[in-house]
Design a binder for these strands. Sequence first.
DNA 1: CTTAGTGCAAAAGATTTGCACTTGT
DNA 2: ACAAGTGCAAATCTTTTGCACTAAG
Lengths: 159, 159
Amino acid sequence: MAMQKKQQNFRQHLVRSGLKATRQRELIARAFFATNTHISAEALYRRVSGRDRRIGLVTVYRTLKLLKEAGLAHERQFGEGRALFEHASSERHHDHMICTHCGKIVEFENCEIEALQEEVARKLGFTIQYHKLELYGRCKECRADASGGTGRIRVVGAR
Amino acid sequence: MAMQKKQQNFRQHLVRSGLKATRQRELIARAFFATNTHISAEALYRRVSGRDRRIGLVTVYRTLKLLKEAGLAHERQFGEGRALFEHASSERHHDHMICTHCGKIVEFENCEIEALQEEVARKLGFTIQYHKLELYGRCKECRADASGGTGRIRVVGAR
DNA sequence: CTTAGTGCAAAAGATTTGCACTTGT
DNA sequence: ACAAGTGCAAATCTTTTGCACTAAG
């Protein structure tokens, strides 16, 4: 989905909900859609702050909440610390592989795993509503330099 | 592993690390090992508090950290809010299925899923260090009463 | 105009830390 | 004795909220 389209979807959601399309919301949404990684509220704030010094972190949090309600953003909690937000396009569900050394996040999907999850749930008498699968480890590059590492997550990018 | 044995393991870990076996640590560890569900620091604190009013929540947190270091406890973060701690026996790794309505937590293990995870990681050029798989949904009982529910997690037990 | 939005400061909630006092060894 | 532990209060850190002011429809 193109950025323009997403921006439009967001505006529609606002109108439908009787909310207003403000300068701040436009700017924050635009900055969010321009991202192609996972980004924290703080990091997104820094980006829009560069464009318009008057925007507050609080508004970023509030706008991200709206984006979630509009179905345009997903909030993820990897390890501890701040949440990261990613685009929630119409794409299928996916899971994440996170490098514990450099913080790189790779998305993947695997139907076989999903099927097995359903099977497990059925055996336990549960109906799955949603799930969370996160693989933590070392990416090729970080395995190569083998500089030890602490095992703690250090996100280099957006965090 | 019997409770007595775990208690002993903990004492050994303390000695090995040049730490002291205090009244508080003994009591907190005993209360933790007596648990057979997932318990929060707060809930564990309430339990030991009943036995000895003088013990502080801070000491519970510090002792849980020691138990983790001793390899006797695992810290889990389900949904948001406080962390839950579980026994880290010599048992194999397991994952969790959590009822979003009553908070029930069921453990399971599935080698096929684990194998597929390894395969995915290999294809992505990663080496897995650890993973987190959580299935959220409704248990049989909570599906039966079908009282709507908010989708938010409400843990009835220890939380 | 009238209702919603914004930004600041303050609150919240879970966990950690500084510090003076207490306790194992 | 002496290093380590404890409990309290205060600090952290991320996210949310109350409120007086501002702006969109």
